[in-house]
Simulated scan of single mutants.
Amino acid sequence: MTALLEVIAFHENDARRAAEGGADRVELLGSLDDGGMSPEPGLVAKVRTSLDHDGIDIDLRPMVRLREGFGTDGAEATRLRGLIASYLDAGANGVVLGFLNGLGEVDAEVVTALVADGDFPWTFHRALDHALDARRAWQVLLGLPRLDQVLTAGSARDVEHGLDDLLTVAREVPGAADLIMAGGGLQPEHVPWLARAGVRAFHIGARARPLGSYKAWVDAGLVASWRHLVDAEISHRVG
């Protein structure tokens, strides 16, 4: 069993450097506002074309989110479905999305409608960390179609504050460890604990950039150091 490493990207240069460092996937954002907003479909096409031109094969998943918060409505949902279709046409392998209803629960109706057309895989993002009842949210997530990753810090703040809850969920909720992609302030020292609990997917943003600054491009060397770390930990646990 191998580890999965995802890196936040804002353009083709980020994506290329992430791939050069050994990342398996990039989460493409239009901006980092409120934790991440959707890119334009044209940017997705530009990134895919650039990567294909260089012979780089890496999973590309853009964020599907147009406004702050984690709620949506029928009118926006229609627009989001069109956006997803545009992303897939532009070369995305899947998407990243996640919505809660007015009760702070996973909005299974909206999410299911958004992913109903097609057979693409998708990630439920950190909306989970803002749900009122995380255990109940997990039970809903486990029943959603084609969901293959849940990006979570275990806390609305970061992994440092949510690590204990992440470890508990990974160990006690059947199927959760296979879906958890730990991210949101992930630190190298968190990886061994998560690997020991069965987590195999990891997500980094600022940690893939010099001085942890989003003003800098992704650095292939930093990504490579994370690639080595997660592979070593997963190999050790499996061994």
Rank of each mutant, 00 (worst) to 15 (best):
T2Y: 11
A3V: 13
F10C: 12
F10I: 12
A15E: 01
R17T: 15
A19V: 10
A19Q: 12
G22C: 07
D24A: 13
D24Q: 12
D24I: 08
R25S: 02
V26W: 04
E27D: 01
L28R: 01
L28M: 02
S31T: 14
D33V: 15
S38K: 10
P39F: 04
P41C: 13
G42V: 09
G42P: 11
L43H: 11
V44S: 05
A45Y: 11
K46C: 15
V47H: 03
R48W: 05
L51Q: 10
H53C: 05
D54F: 13
D54R: 15
G55K: 01
I56C: 03
L60M: 03
L60A: 01
P62C: 06
P62N: 04
R67F: 07
G71M: 09
T72A: 10
T72Q: 07
D73F: 04
E76H: 06
T78R: 14
G82D: 15
L83P: 01
A85M: 04
L88H: 04
A92E: 08
N93R: 05
L100G: 00
L100T: 00
N101P: 07
G102M: 03
E105L: 06
A113D: 15
A113Y: 13
L114M: 01
V115P: 01
V115Q: 01
V115I: 09
A116E: 15
G118D: 13
G118Y: 13
D119G: 06
F120W: 02
F120P: 01
P121T: 04
H125K: 08
H125F: 05
R126N: 10
H130N: 07
H130D: 07
L132G: 07
A134E: 11
A137S: 06
W138N: 03
W138R: 05
V140K: 10
L142C: 09
A153W: 02
G154L: 02
A156S: 15
A156Y: 06
D158A: 05
G162T: 00
L163N: 01
L166A: 01
L167E: 07
V169F: 14
R171H: 10
E172A: 14
E172L: 12
E172Q: 15
G175P: 02
A177V: 09
A177F: 09
G183P: 06
G185P: 05
P188Q: 02
V191Y: 03
P192Y: 05
W193V: 08
W193R: 14
L194R: 04
L194H: 03
R196C: 10
A197H: 09
A197G: 11
H203Y: 08
H203W: 06
H203K: 08
I204W: 07
G205P: 00
G205S: 02
R209W: 02
P210C: 06
Y214R: 14
K215C: 08
K215L: 12
A216F: 03
W217D: 15
W217H: 13
A220E: 11
G221P: 03
G221R: 13
L222Q: 11
L222H: 07
R227E: 07
R227K: 14
H228W: 12
L229N: 11
L229E: 07
V230N: 13
V230Q: 13
D231V: 07
I234K: 08
R237I: 13
